[in-house]
Amino acid sequence: MRSFLLFLVMLALGVALGLFVGWVALPVQYVDTAPDTLRQADRDEVILMIAAAYAGDANIERARARFRRLGLADPGPAIVQTAQRALANGAPESDLRALARLAAAFNTFSPLLDPYRP
C-alpha cells in the first residue's frame, strides 16, 4: 500500500516536472512564423511602419495588403488601438499623425486621433 502511495506521489511529481519543463523551462520554440502571430508590441511596430510608409507613398492598396498579412481585413480598430498605446507610451507626434492619416484612409475616426488629423 505504501509503495502504491509512493508511486502516486512520484507520478504527480513527475507530471508537475514535465509540465514545468514543457511550458516554462523549455517551451516549444516556434520558427518560420507568419506575421499574424506576432506579439502585440511587434504588431504595433509593424502598424507604425505601415503608417509611415503610407505617409510617404499614399498607396492604400499596398497598406491594405500589408494589413492582410497581419490578419487584419478591417484594420481601422487595430490602428486606433495602436494609437492608444503609442499615446500612452509617449510616442512622437509624427507617429500619431501618420496613424491618424492611415485611420482616416480606412474610414476610421476616433476622438483620440482627431487632434492629429491633417
Partner: peptide, 12 residues
C-alpha cells in the same frame, strides 16, 4: 512513478 509522470507531463 517519477519517470511515468515526467513522460506524461512532457507529452501534455
Amino acid at each position: 512513478g517519477l519517470i511515468l509522470g515526467l513522460g506524461l507531463g512532457l507529452l501534455y
